[in-house]
């Protein structure tokens, strides 16, 4: 396991798109530039669309990894 410091954690595995993205955006807005947000999300539409949408908003995707059969972990650095 890597040891990157995570500032905030968000689990959006219980909601559907685009609520996944909306919750991720709202969380990022409450954070400082450069802080790291860890997001857990499901396979399929969430993992396909959330990283791209987050990137389009000017944030940085640090890491995407599969943590369970249908579950992913995303590390995002809060952008400007």
């Amino acid at each position: 396991m890597e040891s990157m410091k995570v500032d905030e954690t968000l689990d959006v595995t219980t909601v559907r798109c685009p609520i996944t993205f909306a919750k991720t955006l709202l969380k990022l807005e409450d954070m400082q530039v450069g802080q790291i947000l860890e997001v857990f999300l499901n396979e399929g539409e969430p993992i396909q669309s959330v990283p791209r949408s987050v990137k389009n908003e000017g944030h940085k995707i640090i890491k995407v990894e599969q943590v369970a059969e249908k579950k992913y972990r995303l590390l995002i650095e809060r952008g400007e």
């Binding site: 909601v15 609520i19 909306a22």
Partner: peptide
Amino acid sequence: MSFTDDQIVRYSRHIVLPGVGSS
């Protein structure tokens, strides 16, 4: 103000819309 869970869902299409967003 911050949004309730219901508000995040109700206004999600605005919140994710560039040019609207949460602000």
